[in-house]
Amino acid sequence: MASELTKDRLLQAYRTMRTIRDFEDRLHADFATGEIPGFVHLYAGEEASATGICMHLGKDDYIASTHRGHGHCIAKGVDVMGMMAEIWGKKTGTCRGKGGSMHIADLSLGMMGANGIVGGGGPLICGAALAMKLRKLDDVAICFFGDGASNQGTIFEALNLATVWNLPAIFVAENNGYAEATSSKYSVACDNIADRASAFGMPGVIVDGFDFFAVHEAAGEAIERARKGGGPTLLEVKLSRYYGHFEGDQQKYRAPNEVAHIKEAKDCLTTFAKRVTGAGQLTQAELSAIDAEVAALIEESVRRAKSDPKPAAADLMTDVYVSY
């Protein structure tokens, strides 16, 4: 069976999802104080997607993220302390405080970056995947994008190229139902993004993005197939974001109690905990211990981020250009 979930792996999955949730919940609270510069787009509610997919990856596999990229970064192993400092604009940040939320990148971990360009990740991973193929590696490249980006030409071009070159590329459409304030029911012509895969000659699968196990299983199959030379796949992960498009978004385009209902009925962390404890794979005490460790980690990351120095004027021109 593909990608067996041992006890350690289950603990890792929960820790990653909990870290993303707490990281985002804390940013939601802190952004309201006005101390954090720039914009943040929070990933809370979507944790099962990044976690279920990135658990199959090593640091030599590449991912390209979106403007809503914190979850992808954490799941790919980017340092939480560095991320928090980056978002606070501090010199100790992942990108030395010059990128902020939408440009967190760590190429040493295969994280090609969050991306403010909607649909910008598709061509990037085609390049990464082509390099892997030419080097005869069994690594894969993954592009996360949203339902809004699913209508962008860059994504169509990338899907086409990935099939033409038979690339080890996985396209993950995280369909959270809204492109900013526009419902995907309105804006996505064929409604299911996965349906478009057949037009590009690749498998397209719809996955329940609230269910870690569903995402993990489907991603495992797609990634294993790509590693063996089977080519690209389009996964449509249907999920929901708990916060607005950006912090401060009043979300008047959503139904009353929509988020509350989703949290109550489908929350990925609650569902995960119920399943693994019900099956006797983990205990509530083990999960609670992780909750406490993660809470302490996030608290410490904020404490450090607040006290760390900002970049100095002398740093303005460093790390900007690369000499080849």
């Binding site: 996965a194 895969a197 199959e221």
Partner: peptide, 8 residues
């Protein structure tokens, strides 16, 4: 007609 068997 859209489950994982399109992939597996």
């Amino acid at each position: 007609g859209r489950d994982i068997r399109r992939l597996t």
